[in-house]
Write a protein that binds this DNA or RNA. Structure first.
Ligand SMILES: [Mn+2]
Ligand SMILES: [Mn+2]
Ligand SMILES: [Mn+2]
Ligand SMILES: [Mn+2]
Lengths: 218, 218
DNA sequence: AAATATTTTTAGACTAATCTAAAAATATAT
DNA sequence: ATATATTTTTAGATTAGTCTAAAAATATTT
C-alpha cells in the first residue's frame, strides 16, 4: 500500500529531477513540499525501503523504475482530471490545479481509464502539459521559453511553467492563451523585458513572464 | 478543519440514527466502521469537542445540527459521484460504491455544484437513494420492503437496502433493476420466501432478498 | 589545508488514529 | 437485591507524518 503522502513526495521528486533522471537534494524536496528537511530525510528513507527510490546518505535521491511508474501515473491522473474540470465542469485553467491535487490520489484503474475515454483521450492538459497514456508514454513537446525567443520571429503559445492562479490570470487579462500567436518585437537589455505583438495589440512583458511562457516556432 | 476520518464517522452516525434523530451506541458505530469500541470512544469525544455531536458518557451519541449538515453534504457528494460514474463512465450500480467512498471527501463547492449541474440535477442515485440538494433538502421516498408487500398487488422496484456488489449482481442476474414491475404471487410461510412475477418470468426469492428490496405500490 | 558555511541527518517530541487489555458503568438474570 | 453479562471507557502502546534543535557530513572560502 502506498500512502497519499508518499505519492506526493514521489511526484515532487519526479518533477524536480526532470523525469526521474538526475539526483534530487533533500532541501529541494523540502521546499517543493513546503516541509522541513528532517521530514524529507525520514520520507526518502521510507521510499527507499519500499523500493520507490534509491538513496545514499548525503548523496541525494533518484526514483527507481517503480517510483517513476507511480509518478507518471499520478501525473496522468492529475492532468486528466484537469481536462475534465475545464472541459466538462466550466473550471478555468487557473482553478483546476488545487482540486486536481486531491483527485489525483483516487485509486481506481477503471475510473481513470473510463475518464480518459470519456474525454476522448486528450493528449494535453489545460496548461499545455502532455498527458501520459495508460502505459505511461507521452511525447516531450518541442518548446522554448519566451525569454529565449528571437526578435522578429512568430511563435505559438504552447504552455506555461508557473501554473499559479496569479500568473494564469495575468495571461487571461492580457489575452494570452494556449494557441495564441505571438511575434517577438523587441528585447530590452536593461531589464530583460520583451515587447511582443498579439493579434490586435502590442504589449511589454517582464522577465518573470518571459521565463514562464512556453512557445513553439511557427 | 475536518478530517476524512471524522467525516466517515459522522456519516456512519447519521446513517445509524436514521437521519440524525435517535442516539447511537458505541458498538454500533464500531461495527459499522469496522473498528474497535475504544477507537470509537476517542472519536466521539473529538466530534463532541468540535461540536459535531452531543455525547454523554455511556449514553450514546447524537449529531448536532452542524454534524447533520456535514453528513448530508457528504451523502450528497457520494450520490452525485455515483450518478456520474454510472451515467458518464459506464460503471454498473454494483461498482460505484467503493470509488464514491473516496470521491465524497474531495472538498470543493464549485466542483460539486458544477457536477450537479453537469448531471442535470439528478434527484436519485443509482440505488434509488435520494440526492440532497445544495441546501441539504431531499424528499423521503414512499417505499416498503418486499417482505411486507401484499400478495396479488403490483409494485415498482425503487431501491435497495443492501448495496453490496453481491446483492446487486444477484438482482442483475435475475433481471431486477430500478423501475422493474413486480407482482407478488405467493408468500411461503415455511421459510418466508416469496414468489414474484416479473415481465416475462416468475421467480422465488429468499427472505434475505425480500428484506433488502424496496418497492412502491402502483 | 584549515576555517567557515551549508546541507543533511539524528534525536527526541508531538498529533491523529488506531489497537489490546483492564477497569468501570450499565443492563440482565436469577 | 445480588450476581452475572454486556457495554463502554480508560490506560498505555503503536504507526505515519510532522516539528525543533543539535550533531555530523559535505562544500566553499580563505
Ligand atoms: Mn497531491
Ligand atoms: Mn496542469
Ligand atoms: Mn468515505
Ligand atoms: Mn448509492
Amino acid at each position: 500500500m502506498i500512502t497519499l503522502t508518499e505519492e506526493n513526495y514521489i511526484k515532487a521528486i519526479y518533477h524536480l529531477s526532470s523525469n526521474g533522471e538526475k539526483t534530487v537534494n533533500t532541501n529541494a524536496i523540502a521546499s517543493a513540499m513546503q516541509t522541513k528537511a528532517s521530514s524529507v530525510t525520514d520520507m526518502i528513507k521510507k521510499l527507499s525501503e519500499k523500493n520507490y527510490a534509491d538513496y545514499k546518505k548525503y548523496q541525494g535521491v533518484t526514483l527507481t523504475d517503480d517510483g517513476k511508474r507511480v509518478a507518471v501515473n499520478i501525473i496522468r491522473k492529475h492532468r486528466l482530471w484537469e481536462v475534465f474540470l475545464v472541459e466538462k465542469l466550466n473550471f478555468s485553467w487557473d482553478e483546476v490545479h488545487e482540486v486536481a491535487e486531491h483527485l489525483e490520489h483516487i485509486k481506481s484503474d477503471k475510473l481513470i481509464d473510463e475518464l480518459d475515454a470519456f474525454l476522448e483521450f486528450p493528449t494535453y492538459d489545460p496548461h499545455g502539459d502532455p498527458i501520459p497514456d495508460k502505459e505511461g508514454n507521452f511525447k516531450h513537446i518541442e518548446k522554448i521559453v519566451l525569454a529565449k525567443a528571437e526578435v522578429g520571429s512568430a511563435y505559438k503559445c504552447v504552455g506555461v511553467d508557473d501554473t499559479s492562479s496569479k500568473f494564469l490570470k495575468y495571461l487571461d487579462s492580457n489575452h494570452i492563451a494556449l494557441g495564441t500567436i505571438i511575434t517577438v518585437k523587441h528585447k530590452e537589455p536593461f531589464d530583460n523585458s520583451i515587447k511582443i505583438a498579439l493579434e490586435n495589440s502590442e504589449i511589454v512583458v517582464s522577465q518573470s513572464v518571459a521565463k514562464n511562457l512556453y512557445l513553439k516556432k511557427i
